[in-house]
């Protein structure tokens, strides 16, 4: 029983990190169909933003709170720049976008390595996140709970934007039928840009949050990008809720597999599970019904 509770928590906290990383992808890949491999480098940009903010503010208790919106802005602007210069030229070539953004990611990584050095930078976590919270006779690190909170917050924010705002309506309209949206006066190009800004910004927030659990290095993104894409693929393109379920499912399954086998074997088994799952549902957990053949 103890094992189950503790592994559930570990899994949920891994799932929250996955969700945080995948949420931005669920917007850019899921809603727009753009495969942005540089998403991982936007995480890194967020993480370095947290580091720089801490250098500037020096009070680690408040720097994290400043870094969260700042990371959103930095990564969002990077994303906007990428969309306007590169991605907008190749909306009709989704697979090529993957390769081009991979190249952009390589360049961003090397820039970070040249600017910040190859050594990992440590970001001190605020004192109010130290310690543990006792629940059900178990101690949970507060940092982990904080990440779950951020993930849930971002999720709620994204869902609210999509569901209740005019912008969200434009985004959904563009996803569902680009031509018709254009016909009724939605600027689909503008909508694309804003969606990409939001999705990339979420990566920045995730990057700031990641500094609580991992060291800040230039290749921070590479270890997260592939699992995050798997989450979106398993969850199904076009619906955020699929990504949410997939993130927590992968996190929890991974945690139990890690407990019973080993961390690396769990990675392999998780992959096998995703392929097996796609055998049952080739389009992922939730799909947008269409009549198209593709």
């Amino acid at each position: 029983m103890d094992v189950i509770v503790s592994q559930l928590f570990t899994g949920a906290s891994t799932g929250a990190v996955l969700l945080l990383v995948a949420l931005g992808l669920a917007l850019t890949f899921g809603q727009m169909g753009v495969i942005n491999m540089a998403h991982g480098e936007f995480l890194m940009a967020g993480a370095y933003t947290a580091y720089l903010t801490q250098q500037a503010v020096s009070n680690s208790d408040v720097s994290l709170l400043i870094a969260l919106p700042l990371g959103f802005l930095v990564a969002g602007m990077l994303g906007l720049l990428l969309e306007m210069t590169v991605i907008s030229r190749m909306y009709h070539r989704p697979l090529d976008t993957l390769l081009v953004t991979f190249g952009v990611g390589l360049i961003l990584q090397q820039v970070a390595r040249d600017v910040f050095g190859a050594q990992p930078k440590a970001v001190a976590s605020p004192t109010w996140l130290h310690g543990q919270l006792d629940l059900l006779g178990y101690g949970y690190p507060v940092t982990r709970l904080f990440i779950v909170t951020i993930a849930v917050g971002c999720l709620a924010g994204t869902a609210a934007v999509l569901k209740y705002t005019a912008l969200g309506r434009r985004i959904r309209a563009t996803v569902q039928n680009r031509d018709l949206a254009e016909t009724v006066g939605v600027s689909t190009r503008g909508t694309d840009r804003v969606t990409f800004f939001l999705g990339s910004g979420l990566a920045g927030v995730a990057g700031v949050a990641l500094t609580l659990v991992t060291a800040t290095v230039s290749n921070l993104g590479t270890s997260y990008i592939v699992p995050a894409f798997l989450v979106v693929v398993a969850g199904g393109i076009g619906q955020i809720k699929g990504s949410v379920i997939a993130a927590f499912a992968l996190g929890i399954v991974g945690a139990f597999l890690t407990y019973y086998t080993s961390g690396s074997l769990a990675t392999v088994l998780t992959f096998v599970l995703v392929v097996a799952f796609l055998q049952i549902r080739p389009q992922g957990l939730f799909t947008v019904r269409t009549r198209s053949l593709a």
């Binding site: 169909g33 495969i35 592939v226 699992p227 894409f229 693929v233 096998v272």
Partner: peptide, 15 residues
Amino acid sequence: GAYFAILSQALAVAF
């Protein structure tokens, strides 16, 4: 398409 590309990449990671 993209699904296949991502799966094949995940395969390399897993291996």
